[in-house]
C-alpha cells in the first residue's frame, strides 16, 4: 500500500479504535491477572468476607472501605476501573484482634472494588462491591 495522507489517516484511526475497544476488557483482565497471580488460579469461595463500601461515593478521591474476613491471614483489595488495579494488602499478625481493617481509597471512575482474602487453610475468598463515583458539577 502506498503511504498517502488518506491511507495514513485510515491506519491511524483504526489503531485508535482498536486501542479504545481494547481498553475496557484490558482493565478487567488486569484485575483478573492480578487476582490469578495472588491465588495461583485457585477457586474463589464467597460468603466469608464482608466488604463495606458506599454505593455512591461523593468524591472518588477519598472513598471509605472496610473489609472483614474472620479466619483470614491476609486481605488484598483491587479496584477494577483504576489504571493500576492493586490498592492494598493487609497481612494480619499474631496480635491482630480481628481480620478487619478500614482505609480510604481513590477510585478513578464508577467500578467494582474487589477483596480477596487468603484464609488460614490456604483457600481464597472473594467479595466485591460496585461503587458509583460522581463527577462534581462545581468542583470549584
Amino acid at each position: 500500500m502506498k503511504l498517502t495522507r488518506r491511507n495514513l489517516l485510515i491506519i491511524s484511526s483504526a489503531g485508535v479504535a482498536a486501542t479504545a475497544m481494547g481498553s475496557l476488557p484490558a482493565f478487567a483482565s488486569l484485575t483478573d491477572d492480578a487476582i490469578n497471580e495472588l491465588t495461583g488460579g485457585a477457586a474463589l469461595g464467597e460468603g466469608a468476607i464482608t466488604l463495606t463500601a458506599p454505593e455512591i461515593a461523593e468524591n472518588g478521591n477519598t472513598v471509605p472501605i472496610e473489609v472483614d474476613a474472620p479466619g483470614a491471614v491476609a486481605i488484598t483489595l483491587f479496584a477494577d476501573g483504576n489504571p493500576v488495579p492493586n490498592v492494598a494488602t493487609f497481612k494480619f499478625g499474631p496480635l491482630s484482634a480481628s481480620r478487619s481493617a478500614s482505609t480510604r481509597i481513590r477510585l478513578a471512575t464508577t467500578q467494582n472494588v474487589v477483596a480477596i482474602a487468603q484464609m488460614e487453610d490456604g483457600s481464597f475468598q472473594k467479595a466485591s462491591a460496585n461503587v458509583k463515583v460522581t463527577i462534581g458539577g462545581c468542583g470549584g
Binding site: N59, T134, I135, C138
Partner: peptide, 24 residues
C-alpha cells in the same frame, strides 16, 4: 438542588478553613 452530581449548599462559611476531599 443538584448541579450535575453536586448537592448545592447555601454557601455558608461557618466551617472554614475546610478540608475538601477534592484537593485533600
Amino acid at each position: 438542588m443538584m448541579i450535575r452530581a453536586d448537592h448545592l449548599s447555601q454557601g455558608q462559611i461557618n466551617g472554614f478553613p475546610t478540608y475538601r476531599l477534592k484537593n485533600a
